[in-house]
Design a protein around this nucleic acid. Structure first.
Lengths: 117, 117
DNA sequence: CGGCATCCCAAAAGATACTG
DNA sequence: CAGTATCTTTTGGGATGCCG
């Protein structure tokens, strides 16, 4: 097993289109309900959100707490193990800020905000 | 455009199955030829490697230098702008180390090295 | 050597409808 | 509210062959 493979398989746990965004939300807001996450991430479908949360849960990154009541209520929190991911998420956040400025410089400030076309 | 969307679109530039691994290689080794990258990342196909490199090039993360000679020689390097990604890659690397230890603790040291089954 | 073009299959993900 | 189930579409990515 090569070094890259280990690196890659460790990344699989949280990279992808949605996981960083979900994790970022949970890091920022702490405990969140399913519907809260949906609102916070409008472009994700219910199916995807469920699926991604299940995978994160499987890998001991998020905790799922279900209240047996009507209507149902499910809360998601980060596990203690997820704290190890905080530096990555922070670095990603910094990068996204930097990248946005980069785009502004390339295409002009006003475009970067309105984002037409 | 929501905050998440900006975050997400910034991530799109380098997350995915292969980009972090490619970037990690370039950060570690500096300038690399196409065939060097192929050797370093055995599981990637020529097609994928080309494709991922083109996308990284498009986003000003890697630089492609082509020598007009026979046989051809193409060298890839990171751009200056790519330095902004270094903290992310480092954090990812740290995480992968941490995660590997985590697995060792769960399943035992010897298994984590030999990795049978 | 470092690609690109084409074909093809499998996996991912969207849409919609239904449920405890 | 927080999901499943099903179906369909889109995408990812492997295999092969050709080319400058």
């Amino acid at each position: 097993m090569s070094m890259d493979c280990k690196f890659e398989s460790a990344l699989e746990i949280f990279v992808g289109k949605w996981k960083p965004v979900i994790l970022f939300q949970l890091f920022t807001n702490g405990t969140m309900r399913f519907s809260q996450l949906q609102k916070a991430i409008p472009d994700i479908s219910k199916k995807m959100l469920t699926q991604q949360l299940r995978e994160l849960e499987y890998h001991d990154i998020v905790n799922r707490k279900m209240y047996l009541q009507v209507p149902p209520k499910v809360e998601y929190t980060l596990t203690e193990y997820a704290n190890n991911l905080e530096p990555v998420l922070n670095a990603m956040w910094e990068w996204s800020e930097t990248h946005l400025k980069h785009l502004s410089e390339l295409y002009g400030e006003e475009r970067a905000q309105g984002d037409r076309t």
